[in-house]
């Protein structure tokens, strides 16, 4: 499953049978040999728009989550390891962000910044940073009391080296699991934003936008709705399965 998604991101424009903006005389056609998933209201090939739109949706999601991962992991490590006032400061600020429903916060940020792709990435990253920071901070709090960390300190390592070499590797598995779960939630958020018209500006395709525009012609050409919806479900499921797989793997390997 992950390979299909990867293929879409990497080779989208070459995989798609037609360019995304190419119109044909038949509009709202059903599936046919020419157009496997039919065409939309102005005669564009739905399959092509799915593949090319998936590229936009998925890459925004992945970049944003990686960003959230980096910022969140650094903040979580700092908060958990240093503790005290630093911990309080970081976590209270993140709590404020955390207190908003994720989606509401995303809508607010996009509305304030304007719906461009960089802004969308930033928005998703901001929304998901607090949960990543929390996920990292928890285990760091316990790992920093482990014997091998005290041993490292008694050997005379610097605080930075202890944090990065002796604590961070111990919290990799929760980070990985959280990351893939976050991907599935982020893709949901981004398509929802696009659905509401806060996604990447038209005419470039993306899954949320397709779903939104296809909705008007649901009775005439159901494929226009089913295709993007199925794509979203597929991607979300992929990430969840990935998360489960990673968790199983690391739970076994993580045994001392």
């Amino acid at each position: 499953m992950a390979f299909v998604l990867l293929a879409i991101v990497v080779a989208g424009p070459w995989l798609a049978p037609y360019p995304a903006e190419l119109t044909s005389p038949q509009s709202l056609a059903g599936p046919s040999a020419e157009h496997l998933l039919g065409t939309d209201s102005i005669g564009r090939d739905v399959l092509s728009r799915m593949i090319i739109g998936g590229r936009a949706t998925l890459s925004i999601t992945v970049i944003a989550v990686v960003l959230a991962l980096l910022i969140g992991a650094i903040l979580g490590l700092l908060a958990g390891y240093l503790g005290g006032a630093v911990d309080q400061a970081i976590m209270r600020v993140l709590d404020v962000l955390f207190a908003f429903p994720a989606f509401l916060l995303a809508v607010a940020v996009v509305a304030a910044l304007g719906p461009t792709i960089p802004n969308l990435i930033l928005t998703i990253a901001i929304v998901y940073t607090p949960s990543m920071a929390r996920v990292v901070r928890g285990p760091v709090l316990s790992v920093k009391r482990w014997d091998h960390v005290e041993a490292a300190r008694s050997v005379g390592l610097s605080e930075f080296r202890i944090a990065t070499r002796h604590i961070l590797p111990m919290v990799v598995s929760p980070i990985l699991v959280e990351t893939s779960l976050m991907l599935s939630r982020a893709i949901f958020t981004i398509t929802a934003l696009s659905f509401l018209g806060l996604g990447p500006p038209p005419p470039d395709p993306n899954w949320g936008g397709e779903l939104s525009s296809g909705r008007q012609f649901m009775e005439l050409a159901p494929m226009n709705v089913i295709a993007p919806a199925a794509a979203i479900v597929f991607a979300t499921l992929t990430f969840i399965v990935l998360a489960n797989g990673l968790r199983d793997r690391f739970d076994v390997a993580g045994q001392r």
Binding site: W146, D147, H148, E150, A151, A152, S154, V155, G156, R165, H166, P169, M170, R256
Partner: peptide, 18 residues
């Protein structure tokens, strides 16, 4: 710390597992 070192009680937890 170069001059003073520590041998901990539990050899199962005082070595970095990875």
């Amino acid at each position: 710390r170069r001059h003073m070192q520590f041998v901990l009680q539990n050899p199962y937890s005082s070595l970095h597992p990875r």
